[in-house]
Amino acid sequence: MDFEHILGLGLLQGLTEFLPISSSAHLILLPTLLGWKDQGLAFDVAVHVGTLIAVVSYFQHDLRQIIKGWFASVFKKNHTQDSRLAWMIIIATIPVGLVGLLAGHLIEIYLRSPIVIAIATLFFGLLLWYSDTKAQRHKDEYAISIKTAIIIGLYQVLALIPGTSRSGITMTGGLLLGLTREAAARFSFLLSVPLIFLAGSLKSVELMSSPSQIDWFSIIMGVFISALSAFACISIFLKVLEKVGMLPFVIYRLILGCFLLYLYAV
């Protein structure tokens, strides 16, 4: 891979994984629009590892408490708000894990198209705007119930459609269920940890069975660039979210969706 491809795709993955604008859509679209060759499975694994490093690093204190609380609840029957949040993350991850394993290959075949991305970008962008303006935002992430976790998990299943945005749709679900903007974002980011880990593990299994050679320079640079940009993105997003709300991201999605429809449907 040329360095500009590594830099562009690494930055793109890091900046869009946690913003409500769909990283998968951008990773599909950028090479298509610029005429780049497919970056390959190994690089996809690399940038996912980078974003996983970023979110684990940013939430290391929270994750340490959550994991510690979960083990205490399992082995010592000692239940705290951290152990409860750990169980809610697990519960919310189950639906997308099951659907991804059972139907992921069908989604790869039938839904990875610019038209699908455009429609999903527009529709779920408008749904994000509705949730941000109409919902009652008064709960934090520790107030999430089993029912709420299941519903957010079902929303997350929709993220398998390219253009939906995993972070965007889980934040939408959280807002509609009464979470504050920050709580919806924090739960969405914490929810990404097991999902990115599982997705990266599956891609790694595919990679190990692939006969293609690995460009280690591209891999290392992809991890570094995506991790650095994702960490900065999470930090800035959480600091400005309560001030700016979701409207800037909704506007971006509407512009992007209309541009894609003009490009591929007209």
Score class of each variant (00 low, 15 high):
residue 3 F to Q: 06
residue 3 F to D: 03
residue 6 I to S: 01
residue 7 L to N: 02
residue 8 G to Y: 11
residue 11 L to C: 00
residue 12 L to Y: 09
residue 14 G to A: 01
residue 16 T to C: 02
residue 18 F to N: 04
residue 19 L to H: 00
residue 20 P to R: 01
residue 25 A to K: 13
residue 26 H to S: 02
residue 27 L to M: 01
residue 28 I to M: 03
residue 29 L to E: 09
residue 29 L to S: 11
residue 29 L to W: 07
residue 30 L to N: 06
residue 33 L to C: 05
residue 38 D to K: 01
residue 38 D to C: 05
residue 39 Q to T: 03
residue 42 A to S: 08
residue 45 V to E: 06
residue 46 A to V: 03
residue 46 A to M: 06
residue 49 V to D: 01
residue 50 G to P: 06
residue 55 V to H: 03
residue 56 V to K: 13
residue 59 F to I: 05
residue 59 F to L: 08
residue 60 Q to W: 14
residue 60 Q to G: 00
residue 63 L to W: 04
residue 63 L to I: 02
residue 63 L to P: 02
residue 69 G to Q: 07
residue 71 F to Y: 10
residue 71 F to P: 10
residue 74 V to F: 15
residue 77 K to N: 08
residue 81 Q to I: 07
residue 83 S to G: 15
residue 85 L to H: 05
residue 87 W to N: 15
residue 87 W to G: 13
residue 89 I to T: 08
residue 97 G to R: 12
residue 100 G to N: 08
residue 103 A to M: 13
residue 104 G to T: 02
residue 108 E to I: 03
residue 109 I to E: 15
residue 113 S to C: 09
residue 113 S to Y: 14
residue 113 S to D: 14
residue 114 P to M: 14
residue 116 V to T: 15
residue 117 I to Y: 06
residue 122 L to D: 13
residue 123 F to H: 04
residue 124 F to A: 07
residue 138 H to G: 00
residue 138 H to Q: 10
residue 140 D to Y: 08
residue 141 E to R: 05
residue 144 I to T: 14
residue 144 I to S: 10
residue 147 K to E: 13
residue 149 A to V: 14
residue 151 I to T: 10
residue 153 G to S: 03
residue 155 Y to W: 12
residue 160 L to W: 08
residue 161 I to L: 08
residue 163 G to A: 12
residue 163 G to V: 10
residue 165 S to C: 07
residue 166 R to G: 05
residue 166 R to P: 02
residue 167 S to R: 05
residue 168 G to Q: 05
residue 176 L to A: 13
residue 176 L to F: 08
residue 177 L to G: 08
residue 178 G to S: 11
residue 179 L to Y: 13
residue 179 L to T: 02
residue 180 T to R: 02
residue 181 R to S: 06
residue 183 A to L: 07
residue 184 A to R: 06
residue 186 R to V: 15
residue 188 S to D: 00
residue 191 L to S: 10
residue 192 S to W: 04
residue 193 V to F: 09
residue 194 P to I: 13
residue 195 L to N: 08
residue 196 I to W: 12
residue 208 M to L: 15
residue 212 S to D: 15
residue 217 F to W: 09
residue 220 I to Y: 07
residue 221 M to N: 06
residue 224 F to P: 04
residue 224 F to M: 07
residue 226 S to Y: 03
residue 230 A to F: 01
residue 231 F to P: 00
residue 231 F to K: 01
residue 231 F to W: 04
residue 233 C to H: 01
residue 235 S to K: 04
residue 235 S to W: 09
residue 235 S to T: 00
residue 236 I to R: 02
residue 240 V to W: 10
residue 242 E to N: 15
residue 245 G to V: 12
residue 249 F to W: 03
residue 249 F to K: 02
residue 252 Y to N: 11
residue 261 L to C: 11
residue 266 V to D: 08
